[in-house]
């Protein structure tokens, strides 16, 4: 049996939130269900993309701490000696 579009959307949004580092508590689950419901009411044919988009807007997803990739460049040159 094919899963319902709402079922797919719910699974995907919860996975997205978990992979984004959010702790999925019962309260979060209720919010996700509300998002799915809202998406279904908005446009039944585009439930999945609406859900993902709404979830990104509604939840405070942790931003990644970006390490310093390199120090400030202190330009020098390579020489060839006297030869």
């Amino acid at each position: 049996m094919q899963p319902l579009s709402a079922e797919v959307a719910l699974t995907r949004v919860i996975a997205y939130l978990e992979l984004s580092g959010l702790n999925v508590t019962p309260s979060v689950e209720r919010q996700v269900l509300a998002v799915v419901l809202e998406a279904l009411e908005t446009d039944e044919s585009a439930t999945l993309d609406t859900c993902v988009r709404l979830a990104r807007q509604r939840f405070d997803l942790r931003s990644v701490a970006m390490p310093v990739i390199a120090p400030v460049i202190c330009r020098g040159s390579i020489g060839y000696g006297d030869h």
Partner: peptide, 11 residues
């Protein structure tokens, strides 16, 4: 290595 030295070698 040369690329590294040109950028940060003087540090």
């Amino acid at each position: 290595i040369g690329d590294f030295l040109r950028r940060w070698g003087r540090n």
